[in-house]
Amino acid sequence: TFVEFNGKKVEYPTPEAAEKAAKKLAKKLNLKVTKKNGNYKLE
């Protein structure tokens, strides 16, 4: 499962880990999380 932000793509071993990381990053970077095709994107 990938988390995409600032043009970077980071892969996580589980969807749970990706979701957790996405939410944490979104909060830190003041972005919102969108889920697309099972992957997460911060914008």
Rank of each mutant, 00 (worst) to 15 (best):
N39G: 15
A26K: 02
L31T: 03
N30S: 08
L42A: 02
V33G: 01
A21K: 03
V33A: 04
A17W: 06
A18M: 01
P13K: 11
E43N: 06
K36G: 07
K27Q: 11
L42K: 02
F2Q: 04
T34Q: 07
E16K: 11
T1Q: 05
K8H: 13
N39S: 12
L42E: 02
F5A: 03
P15D: 11
A26E: 02
K24Y: 15
K23G: 07
K41A: 10
A17N: 04
E43Q: 09
K8V: 13
V10C: 14
V10S: 07
K8A: 08
T1L: 06
T14N: 10
A18E: 01
P15N: 09
L29R: 05
L29V: 03
N6W: 14
K9I: 13
V3Y: 03
K36T: 14
E4Y: 12
L29S: 03
K23P: 00
L25A: 04
P15C: 09
T14V: 03
T14M: 03
K9W: 11
N30R: 11
K41V: 15
P13R: 10
G7V: 01
N37H: 08
N6K: 09
K24P: 00
N37V: 04
F5Y: 13
N6G: 10
A26M: 04
A18P: 00
V10G: 03
K8W: 15
Y12R: 00
K27W: 09
T14F: 05
L31N: 00
E19L: 15
K9Y: 11
N39W: 09
K28E: 11
A21C: 09
G7N: 08
P15Q: 12
F5C: 07
A22H: 00
A18W: 01
A22R: 01
V33E: 01
L42D: 01
Y12P: 01
F5V: 06
P15V: 10
F5M: 05
A22C: 05
K32L: 10
N30Y: 06
T34N: 07
A26F: 01
N6S: 07
V10Y: 15
E4S: 08
T1M: 07
K27L: 12
A26S: 06
A26W: 02
A18T: 02
N39P: 01
P15S: 09
K35D: 05
T34A: 06
K9L: 11
K27S: 10
V10K: 12
N30G: 15
K24I: 14
K27V: 08
V3L: 07
V10N: 06
K32I: 14
K24W: 15
Y40D: 02
T34L: 10
L29G: 04
K41E: 10
E16Y: 10
A21N: 04
N37C: 14
T34E: 08
E19V: 06
E16H: 10
P15H: 08
N39K: 05
A18K: 00
E43D: 08
P13H: 08
V33Y: 07
A17T: 07
V3R: 00
L25S: 01
E16L: 10
Y12W: 05
Y12G: 00
N37E: 11
L42T: 02
K20S: 10
K41G: 05
K8T: 10
K41M: 15
L29Q: 03
E16I: 09
E11F: 15
G7T: 04
N39V: 14
N39H: 14
V10Q: 09
K9G: 04
K28L: 14
L42N: 01
E11I: 14
N39A: 10
P13G: 08
N30T: 05
N6H: 13
K23N: 13
L31S: 03
K36R: 12
N37P: 03
T1N: 11
F5Q: 00
